[in-house]
């Protein structure tokens, strides 16, 4: 139970960092924290104490396998979600670079031309 709570704490810190911090790079770090905490959450769902890798060998005992094999599906989901996170991260970094070229600052509070 404690690990789930700690994981949610990371998630909340990430969201806070992404919204409240004004520095663009800190925002990016917040985004990364947020995504990693969700990935960790998915892995925790499939976790089993003393689990074995979910690969069924021909000589494996099926009952033992069903009892101790970890759930492979969340691991597959996490792989996909890491790749998506990488795409978002790259786009965000590209945006930060372009914003710096235009505004000569990383401070989001000075990047405010849109209103109304």
């Amino acid at each position: 139970m404690v690990v789930y709570i700690l994981d949610m704490v990371i998630l909340v810190i990430g969201i806070y960092c992404l919204i409240a911090k004004r520095h663009l790079i800190k925002k990016i770090i917040g985004m990364v924290l947020m995504e990693y905490s969700v990935n960790l959450f998915l892995i925790l769902i499939g976790y089993r104490h003393n689990g074995i890798a979910p690969i069924l060998m021909p000589d494996e005992n099926r009952v033992h396998f069903a009892q101790y094999g970890v759930d492979p599906l969340p691991q597959a989901l996490v792989l996909t979600s890491i790749v998506i996170g990488l795409g978002t991260l790259a786009l965000m970094a590209a945006y930060a670079m372009r914003l710096y070229e235009k505004y000569r600052t990383f401070d989001m509070s000075e990047i405010r031309r849109l209103k109304g």
Binding site: I15, L18, I19, K27, Y95, L99, R113, L114
Partner: peptide, 15 residues
């Protein structure tokens, strides 16, 4: 303006 709007959208969309 476009970069600012895009970044804002990106942050909220990611959340």
């Amino acid at each position: 303006e476009e970069l600012e709007a895009g970044f804002k959208y990106l942050v909220l969309g990611t959340i």
